[in-house]
């Protein structure tokens, strides 16, 4: 029970990072972006590449940090990966979404995002192979946090959770303390009115992709660090991330953060009663439950 709860919180932090970017893009550009989860894959593989590069360039970077399997090289690679993934998100927007958007039609955007997701996923598969990869071949033993109730946690998991919380807190500070944060919230609330007040909409769209891509990259690396990396990583996390945005209410950044944790915890607790084979279907049950009980989610507003 307590083990499932803790595992749920750890997975939840990864889902939250993914859901924050997704909900922002969905709210501002008015479409369900099915390619968002592929940014997690891009981030995970990008970090894998730069991890290797840094280790090759300067060997001491290959040393692990404390009890973690995380190396100095990988922690640098995370930062680079966040930047590159944010850049890729902008590139995808310029190449595909912006052009489809210009032609109008929110539904075309959704279709396009499915197409983009397929292309990214399979290009990653072709480039890096379909096999499972790991950041570190060393076996890191889980720590026994307590014997009764029995609780096992890997150091990497704790690192991921803490890092995810720090990133989210930093983003919260940006949102609540800076002019940029105010403009972001203004655009999310009412794009037309925000433009009238002199906010450059296109610049905000670009920034949203950078932030969304960066957060997604961090989520992807943390997932790779605590589980494994493979080309279908994004596909497997897509539905849970969508569930998190719906739980939080589409468009609500804080809702998405909370939604991620709730989906993670609920999915893990469900394993107490359901066989583990059913876990990919869990997010769908959560979506159904939210739609029945409170369609607007925790913090969503009613809007057609």
């Amino acid at each position: 029970m307590i083990q499932h709860l803790v595992d749920g919180i750890l997975v939840g932090s990864i889902l939250s990072l993914g859901a924050i970017g997704l909900t922002m893009a969905m709210h501002m550009l008015r479409f369900a972006n099915f390619s968002h989860a592929e940014l997690l894959s891009i981030g995970a593989y990008c970090a894998l590449v730069f991890d290797g590069v840094f280790k090759a360039v300067y060997t001491p970077l290959g040393d692990v940090i404390g009890p973690l399997s995380l190396t100095w090289a990988l922690s640098l690679a995370i930062v680079i990966s966040m930047a590159i993934t944010g850049g890729s998100a902008i590139l995808i927007d310029r190449l595909v979404f912006a052009r489809v958007r210009a032609k109008g039609g929110e539904l075309s955007m959704v279709f396009a995002s499915f197409g983009v997701a397929m292309i990214i996923r399979n290009v990653l598969g072709l480039t890096f192979g379909l096999k499972v990869q790991l950041y570190s071949q060393d076996i890191v033993f889980a720590m026994v946090l307590s014997r009764d109730p029995f609780l096992l946690v890997k150091p990497d998991q704790i690192f991921s959770l803490v890092a995810a919380l720090i990133i989210m807190f930093a983003f919260h500070l940006v949102l609540s303390r800076t002019t940029f944060g105010y403009s972001l919230r203004a655009v999310a609330e009412n794009p037309q009115l925000a433009q009238v007040s002199g906010i450059n909409l296109n610049r905000m769209i670009t920034l949203i992709w950078i932030i969304g891509g960066g957060l997604a990259a961090a989520a992807g690396v943390f997932y790779g660090l605590t589980n494994q990396i493979n080309p279908v990583l994004g596909r497997d996390l897509l539905l849970p991330i969508f569930a998190a945005t719906i739980v939080g209410g589409i468009g609500s950044i804080y809702g998405a953060a909370l939604g991620g944790f709730l989906v993670g915890i609920a999915s893990n607790l469900a394993l107490l009663i359901l066989p583990s084979g059913y876990s990919p279907a869990m997010p769908f049950l959560i979506i159904l439950a939210v739609l029945i009980i409170r369609p607007t989610g925790l913090f969503g507003e009613e809007r057609q």
Binding site: A32, V110, F242, Y278, P283, L285, L291, P295
Partner: peptide, 28 residues
Amino acid sequence: KLTIRLRHDYLAIATFGVAVAFENLMRN
């Protein structure tokens, strides 16, 4: 019934979800 009154994203996500869940159910 659950999604048609909401904005269109919900139908997109729910139908995508039903496909994942259906395949999962049939497999298990």
